Simulated scan of single mutants.
Amino acid sequence: MNRLARFAGFGSDDRGQVDRDDLATTQAAVADAGAEAGQAVDDPETLREPIIAALRQVHDPEIPVNIYDLGLIYKIDIAGNGDVDVDMTLTAPACPVAGLMPVMVKDAVKTVQGVGEVAVELVWDPPWSPDTMSDEAKLTLGMF
């Protein structure tokens, strides 16, 4: 394992797990909306940034970059009642965490106060490519 991967925590037992303590700030950001799960949200878009922050706590166990910056999240639809639909992909169809990753995404999104039901769909079109990665992710992986 290279030094960068160790520094980023690659290979540790808790990679891919959502640290609910780290999400306390995220939850506080939407607390002012006064929304409870399943109830109407004044402006569903107020949930977008906290949801993205929660998704940034989820890491692909094989790559030391969060799934949002890795470009695995294609769509986040937020309904007026706080229900959230997420379309995501994986870096490869034969990814060994294909069954686990959507569950990790659902669990992360559910930690955001004001979110109701969460549905995660695994999609393959368009196929993932390194072009979907954020500049920060490319820098972390030495692709610049």
Rank of each mutant, 00 (worst) to 15 (best):
V18I: 13
W128H: 05
Y74D: 04
P93Q: 04
A8C: 12
E62D: 11
D107V: 04
Q39C: 00
E36K: 09
A37G: 14
V86K: 09
D125R: 10
L100K: 01
R56C: 09
Y74P: 01
A35R: 02
D60K: 05
P127T: 11
L100M: 09
L139G: 05
P96S: 08
I52R: 10
I73H: 03
S12W: 10
V115C: 10
P130Q: 15
L100E: 10
G114L: 00
A5M: 01
D135V: 15
D125K: 13
G9Q: 14
P130I: 14
T140H: 03
I76K: 05
A137P: 01
G11T: 07
I78A: 05
M143N: 06
D125G: 08
D85K: 09
A79E: 08
G99E: 14
I63N: 04
T91F: 10
P130M: 15
G142E: 05
D125V: 12
L90Y: 06
E136L: 15
A33P: 02
N2I: 01
K138D: 04
V18F: 02
D22K: 11
V118K: 00
V30P: 02
G99W: 12
T46S: 12
M133W: 10
D32K: 13
G16N: 12
G9F: 14
D22V: 03
K106C: 01
S12C: 08
G80E: 15
A33N: 05
K110I: 05
Q57E: 14
Q17W: 07
G11R: 13
P102F: 03
E45L: 15
I51M: 00
K110R: 13
